[in-house]
Amino acid sequence: MTEAIAVLKESIGVERAVGIYEIKRAKIASFALVIGDPNPLWQDIAPPSLIPTLGFARILPELISLFPTLLHGSTELECHQPVRAGDRIKVSSKLANIRQRAGKDQRPVVFLTIELTYKNQRQELVARCRQVLIAQ
């Protein structure tokens, strides 16, 4: 665990490209279906909660491989404009902070703060998100 933290600490503040995600109508529809949200709004517009999932698959595996248990601490989403069908959303992320403290049984608990930025095909900021993950 100490080794994992040392590796990650080197990347604090370094912004990296996660990927570009095309928002298809079918993706919006399947997302709303899985949540169980039949709101007719979710045809041309994506539910805001879709945004934090973009690129999440790219960020998680590395962290899961470093820590035996990874739980979600918090999600803070700030929306600047709606994500619409046909948008191409570019996601970038950076590790903003690592904090460590003794948890129950004195086992170390690590709090990882990841900041993500989402821009559309016109380079306009659509959203920001701050995720805190708890590793044990």
Binding site: P47, S49, T75, E78, C79
Partner: peptide
């Protein structure tokens, strides 16, 4: 988190806009 988003959009209707959602 998405369920909380749904709580809000069900409430605010067509013209409501979500600016921030923290949990």
């Amino acid at each position: 988190f998405s369920f909380l988003g749904q709580l809000l959009s069900d409430w605010t209707g067509e013209q409501g806009v979500l600016n921030k959602l923290n949990c």
